[in-house]
């Protein structure tokens, strides 16, 4: 549904987005990760047709966003960063306006309004003016606006920003649910959301894609991925060192296999060793890797990386 080809956006001398390519199909939820200022919002603004790209191409549902913007925009529901909405309107008035802008007639508007109000839990504030709402309600009002025309493509810029943990949970569930039938792109800098909602994630840094894969694949890039951590009475570092590189953590040991994919063999070898040496195994766990470690490693500036 969304196809991005070698997208570039320059602001003066600064290349905010520098050759980004990816595609998102129906039924996929793509998480867009990156530090602040990495180019996430800029990319999303180009997908939605707000910024014209400096170079490269965006097509949504087969329509080039630059050449036939209206056709492309009809397919997209967009939640902009900071969830802007008209503060002097009521929630009902605002959603009615958005539905009308999407070309819906009065009966269709009524149905659409009822649907999004239920989905985004807005019944209690429907006739309140938007500037009197809490941040969470403002956010959900803007999210409701993105869903009002039941779009095939959803572009959500930090959809959980400013929500409390319960609301975050609700929104993640909603995104996962919507992702079954739509193409969804959402940006975040909260890593747990990738696990909670995404089928695929892209990490972007200084305008370039630095990693692209399923959450599991990204985690496997971590240093500790594939290592086995054990806690056992009587375990000795020297004996364990015959199986691989050993790291001593307080009270337990972590063994790194030479080959990351060989953690099953390593686990069996450790169990056999413990059995042979008469250690009492309390805990044994294979490390999947940590997203935050991967994220930090690939998005830190080179100078920081070198200096430790």
């Amino acid at each position: 549904m969304i196809r991005i080809d070698n997208l570039v956006k320059t602001f003066g001398p600064k290349r905010a987005v520098d050759g980004v390519s990816f595609s998102v199909e129906r039924g996929e939820v793509l998480g867009f990760l990156g530090p602040n200022g990495a180019g996430k919002s800029t990319t999303m603004r180009m997908i939605t047709g707000f910024y014209p790209p400096s170079a490269g191409k965006v097509t949504v549902g087969g329509h080039d966003v630059t050449e036939s913007p209206l056709e492309a925009k009809r397919l997209i529901g967009y939640l902009p960063e900071n969830a802007a909405s008209y503060p002097d309107m009521t929630v009902r008035g605002f959603l009615e306006f958005c539905a009308e802008m999407r070309g819906m007639d009065a009966p269709a508007r009524k149905k659409a309004l009822a649907r999004v109000v239920e989905r985004c839990f807005l019944e209690s504030v429907l006739d309140q003016s938007i500037d009197t709402l809490s941040k969470g309600y403002k956010h959900r009002t803007c999210l409701a606006q993105a869903l009002i025309h039941d779009p095939e493509v959803l572009v959500l810029d930090e959809p959980t920003d400013g929500l409390d943990p319960n609301q975050k949970h609700e929104v993640r569930n909603l995104i996962r649910e919507l992702g079954k039938t739509k193409a969804v792109v959402f940006s975040t800098h909260i890593l747990e959301e990738v696990d909670a909602a995404c089928s695929r994630a892209i990490i972007i840094d200084r305008g370039r894609i630095v990693a692209n894969g399923t959450p599991g694949e990204l985690r496997a890039l971590s240093d500790v991925a594939g290592a086995v951590t054990l806690h056992a009475q009587g375990a000795s570092e020297e004996k364990l060192a015959t199986l691989g590189r050993v790291e001593k953590l307080n009270g337990s040991f972590r063994v790194y296999p030479a080959d990351k994919t060989a953690s099953a063999e390593l686990t069996r070898a450790i169990v056999a060793l413990a059995d042979h040496e008469g250690w009492k195994l309390d805990a044994l766990r294979t490390e999947e890797g940590h997203l935050d470690e991967v994220f930090r490693r690939i998005t830190l500036p080179d100078t920081v990386k070198r200096n430790g």
Binding site: L70, K73, M101, R102, C142
Partner: peptide, 14 residues
């Protein structure tokens, strides 16, 4: 200032 220009111009209008 409010950022609603982004909302308005990403709707299907010229």
């Amino acid at each position: 200032r409010a950022g609603t220009i982004e909302l308005l111009l990403t709707m299907p209008v010229t």
